[in-house]
Amino acid sequence: MSEKTLNLTLKIWRQKNKETRGSFETYPISGISTDMSFLEMVDVLNEKLITDGKEPVAFDHDCREGICGMCSMYINGRPHGPKHGVTTCQLHMRSFKEGETIVIEPWRASAFPVLKDLVVDRSSFDRIMAAGGFISVNTGNAQDANSLPIGKDDADESFSSAACIGCGACVAACKNASAMLFVAAKVSQYALLPQGQPERSTRVLKMVAQMEQEGFGSCTNTGACEAECPKGISLSNIARLNREYISASASSK
């Protein structure tokens, strides 16, 4: 709890809309408390821009407690910035040095087109989910929850995969803009649970097909996704996805 203030230079990507081309703008900013979150720092900048009669920087954010997955800034060459295991909203200014220049870019991927400034369209993730990221059970059909015991280890592992917040940092971090970690996490969550078995094969085939259609790149196992994932989703999920895919392809009709 040693609050200090910082003077910084921000280099931020500005882009009017999907159709126009963007460019970087540079903004000096001073008196930033080290206790502020990164987004609160951008709030301060925006307040200043509004006062000066300029357009504030558009960026996605909502819960500001690291769980909704909406915030998405590529800060100094890394998704969600320099700190390991946090989203941008949980990144605090104490992670930066006095006088630093901070480069802020939107997620870059053809499947995540920029809508404005730092706001990108991640509906490709929703479409992958719609293709197969579910268990087909209509409301009202469920049996008693405890009639289906699930070993703690499997349940815990499934939960670790399910912890994905769908922020897209994995895609942003990957040099190939691959969405494998996102897809793998969902495939793993269900592959590890007995409820997920009936659709195990079709799910992985459909989700991978949709991932392909959205134009995400391939996985070269660099591990950048795992390292940058704010929720620590493991790369072993990708290996499981590959395994699931191979066996599903081999047995599909």
């Binding site: 100094n76 870059r108 040099k175 390292a227």
Partner: peptide, 11 residues
Amino acid sequence: YAKVDGAANSS
């Protein structure tokens, strides 16, 4: 990207 800090997350 204009700036990439690849060393931070991969070899």
